[in-house]
Amino acid sequence: MDTHLLLITLASILADSAPLVFAVIGETIGEKAGVTNLSLDGSILLSAMVGFAVAYTTNNLYLAFLAAMLVGALVAALIAFSSIVLRLDQIAVGFVLTLLCTDLSTFFGNPFVRQPGPSVPHLAIPILENIPIIGALFFDHNVVVYLSFVAILAAWWWIYKTQPGLKLQGIGERPAAAFARGTNVNLQRFLYTIVGGSLVGMAGASYSLFVKLGWSYHATSGLGWIALSIVIFGGWNPIRGAIGAYIFGGLQSFGDFAQSIFPSVPTQVFQTAPFAFMIIALLLVSNDAIDRFFSGSPVSRKIWQSLRGTPPGALSTTFEQE
């Protein structure tokens, strides 16, 4: 394979992974604060539909993305409210919302199925696009893809390099300690969950307005679950999560490639491969036996520990702030 083709392939992997990256970053932010938004598979679907529907009717992409983000934020706010104010199980509410959002997207998306609609225009960044290799990889896309890059870096910088980010880690790890130090744990959780949710909405809109244009029933089905497991695989770190998303995108395009080489292998094998990978990846990062295996020597142990992450200490729990 010549370098030019390789570059094009890599660039398209970076671009097509944008929805997954948004979803992974959004979910990572929420879970860092201690709130699991399990509704991803449904809320991405609903925001993809709403994003496309708004773009189709108004022909305004800004409005479309805004509406999709609003949908994601609303669903997240509902989960935050039920968890923080009503002290309900986040998993239960999230799962019900997954199914409800899926059906809502089918019900209201009916008139928009397979309609041609607007898409995000290509926008290479002048000067930067001419840098060899880097230009083709990172600066020859559209605004949405650039924003996905920005989201990764901004989330990482905010969580690990700023004062409020430190507090964010605190409310997810030890809410009682954070509260004792004067942080309004529940207010912060609310805000971060909503920010995460709007990124999830962004994921939906970028899917239907860029990666796979238009709307059809269950268009993004499965994407949310993949995103949720990549958050675990990435150890709740935005950069590692993003790498997970890109590896996944790479595997997918490799699957398309392999399918063209081995036409005798049924397509179902390739369509299911992501979910088999998902299970294997989760096994790798959460299994004790593998942990013990790598703990044999101090060096391998060090490397392994840097690869695997631990969930925020108070993930999916409610905090009584009294």
Partner: peptide, 21 residues
């Protein structure tokens, strides 16, 4: 669209769970 049934089921479960909270 027949997904109306799913919408009705989902909304009812969501509201019942929320109302319990």
């Amino acid at each position: 669209d027949s997904s109306l049934g799913g919408v009705l089921q989902g909304i009812i479960v969501l509201l019942v769970v929320l109302s319990q909270g």
